[in-house]
């Protein structure tokens, strides 16, 4: 190893923080906290108010949730567009594909089944 005085050779630059940089590092988390709080409050407000056209409330809540997840990914998990997290972003993109297939596929198939299958009461009436 190039630094013989280090007992563990696997400490890369960026693993440690200079005490002078602590306020800056915490500041990043506080920005994330402010944005997440704002989005959460908007979500709770929209769900209970008459402000938004009511049939669109689930869509609005989904969009707000996605935005907040983005805030969490960037400010808390530090999944960014930097060179160190290319692999992480690729894995996340693949995971999101699976999640979308699972959720929307299930909903799509099951709603169609629901439409096409005769309600139980009517089937019982026909059997009589």
């Amino acid at each position: 190893m190039s630094n013989p005085h280090e007992s563990h050779g696997d400490v890369a630059p960026g693993d440690e923080i200079d005490p002078a940089e602590i306020p800056q590092a915490i500041g990043g988390y506080l920005i994330g906290l402010a944005l997440a709080t704002l989005l959460t409050c908007v979500s709770f407000y929209i769900a209970q108010s008459m402000l938004v056209w009511q049939p669109s409330i689930p869509i609005a809540l989904s969009v707000l949730a996605l935005a907040q997840m983005g805030v969490h990914l960037v400010f808390f998990l530090h999944i960014t567009s930097g060179p160190d997290s290319v692999n992480n972003v690729m894995a996340l993109a693949f995971g999101l594909l699976i999640v979308a297939l699972l959720v929307f596929g299930s909903l799509w198939i099951m709603t169609h089944l629901d439409h096409n299958v005769m309600p139980m009461e009517r089937m019982m009436q026909m059997q009589r």
């Binding site: 959460t40 979500s43 709770f44 929209i46 769900a47 209970q48 009511q54 049939p55 409330i57 689930p58 809540l61 989904s62 707000l64 949730a65 907040q68």
Partner: peptide, 12 residues
């Protein structure tokens, strides 16, 4: 909390 609780109580 968004899609279970808030969508669950939202008026529709």
């Amino acid at each position: 909390f968004s899609l279970v609780y808030l969508v669950g109580v939202a008026p529709r």
